[in-house]
Design a protein around this nucleic acid. Sequence first.
DNA 1: ACCAAGGGTATTTTT
DNA 2: TACCCTTGGT
Length: 743
Amino acid sequence: MASYDLLNPEQKEAVLHTEGPLLILAGAGSGKTRVLTHRVAYLIEQGVNPYQILAITFTNKAAGEMRERVDRLVGDGGTSVWVSTFHSTCVRILRRFIDRLGYDTSFSIYDTDDQKSVMKEVCKRLQIDTKIYKERMLLSAISKAKDELVNPVEMQLSAEGDYHRQKIAAVYQEYQTQLRKNNALDFDDLIMKTVELFQNCPEVLENYQERFRYIMVDEYQDTNTAQFKLVSLLASKYRNLCVVGDDDQSIYRFRGANIGNILNFEDVFPDAKVIKLEQNYRSTSNILNAANEVIHHNKGRKDKRLWTDNGEGAPVHFRQFQNAFEEAEHVVGNITSHIQKGEAGYKDHAILYRTNAQSRLFEEKMIYANIPYKIIGGVNFYARKEIKDLLAYLKTIDNGRDEIAVRRIINVPKRGIGATTLTRVSDYAGAYDISFYDALLRAEEIPGLGRGSAKILPFTVLIQSLRAKQEHATVTELLETILEETGYRKELELEGTEEAEARLENIDELINKVKDYDENAEEPSLGGFLEEVALVADIDNLEEDSDHVVLMTLHSAKGLEFPYVYMVGMEEGLFPSFMSIVSDDAAEEIEEERRLCYVGITRAKKELTMTAARQRMLRGEVQYNTVSRFIKEIPDEYLENKSESPAQRAREAKEQRINQRKEAQLAARRSLRAKPFETKQVTAVKADKLEYGVGDRVKHLRFGEGTVLEIIEGSRDYEVKVSFDSAGVKKLFASFAKLKKVY
DNA sequence: ACCAAGGGTATTTTT
DNA sequence: TACCCTTGGT
């Protein structure tokens, strides 16, 4: 039984208001997750079946956290509450019912990389001049349309008389055709197709309306039109829709987020109850006041002002440096001194920047200073070449219609199959209206292939045998077989370069993740694994318990908090970004940047340091930037500006610094070369010793209780053989299986 | 079919 | 600066 006494009056009100539409305007750090989880607990206490509660978040990390907190609060009863992201919710629904829209339920999910490949093909087919219509731009136009639930036909109609837009509509049309041919959906499709499904199949919608009688949406300010539609359809029957958000933290306009969803909630649901959470439990009042002042410069927001009864704390620090090197040096030095004084651990620090490119300098300095760090974002783990290659093999096994996947790996490792051969196969597939892979199976019949068909044969034989194997093998076994049979691993090993070494490490990491999946998923399957992998963001991998400094963009930082926060690159042209300043609707865009700034400031619990550089290298050019307007929006009473004047600065002996810098760069480069891809994250760590021994009773998440039969100590992990009461004898890896001793 | 080199171009944020 | 794509050579 959860206790509600520790909630403040507004929080309590939000928890107790269970029926009808509810808008919770939750300021930064006002305890919204707490409210949401307690609300779930309360609903269950009131006799609501947990199975009928749906909580939607944006990231897997947020979902995981909520899941954990719900479990802790309500115990086993909470496990059937459906907590997941928009995208995975939609995938789960589509996997059941998308056949009604003419897709196969084993559809692939395409990431931006795959989308680009499709778009290339589309442009070739339609003979689009990619000098004028850039693939990137076409894709973003399509994405925008999907966010707004506009289909190709509608776009075509609305483009009447506009040649340019008509062209885009034609591309959109063909792009969808290609996706369907590949039995694939892109990210935006996941939402849009689900909405389509609901609109076309009332009985399916009804089914889910009945199921989800209580719906909660987190980060509501970031929903786009399609997501809003999805939620309103689901909630339209029982109307128990609770949305939580903060219009001041709406930072995904570029991705289609419609701030109107939160600003107009009360218009759409006139009977909505509105509750504001304005007490902040996170930051000092200096930090909070600075945030309030900055965001106050925005128009068209819901009026609110956060307050706290935490102490005043230190003023917000601001320093401007001569260049980006010194900026990085200062930040890293500052962190080091906190550590040395024993004031804080590495993990208490976060460095936040506007663009991913800024991470590099900090990374170099960290390596030099021997500070453990983790970079979030940049190239997603699953977007790396070697990982994508291996996933493409798995996808090919799983979904024979995914041409992008097949094409990706048909000549990796090299099988001597080139462009000409592929075109012939593709033409043949088109002529007989079969999939690309099926055409490969008939390689001998394809005219003009000649010796090409002999080269194709080993590939199809391999895939066919893997498909056969899939029936009874785990994903781990499949992956290992691929690595061996294709010679992929061997090739990298023979290469012997540091880069190949890094790739091999990444592959090991992938194997770890697969093992983890095989052993912990409810019902492990190849399709299930691919699905899980398709929807992870880098932020999802942030582990709270390991001790390192975190570097990430301001966007990724939303929802997190750190005692010490550094907001770097506070310069006009960088933050706010150049694009936003020169944009056609600069007013709107700058407001979005300001909200981003607000998000950054409110991440800090104890101390906030903002820095800028007069000079910095940007895309190969030296830029001279002035201090960001956002700094100027913070009144002096909350801000301590310790920037040195240029004159003072000039007097300083530069020599020493320059030397130091060179040295540092050298060292950094040396170790950067050793690991060209960010710090390796090892998810599987061999425990020093296990808490259980042979003969002990243990409990496994999926298999239930059992008795330990045998423990084999391997070099990297313990292999534990357990006889489960109901699931039989299993061999498990200790670091993944998370066995708990039962007393 | 494969590779290396060079030119051109982009750069904001990401589920 | 760094990547991507085209080009041209073998």
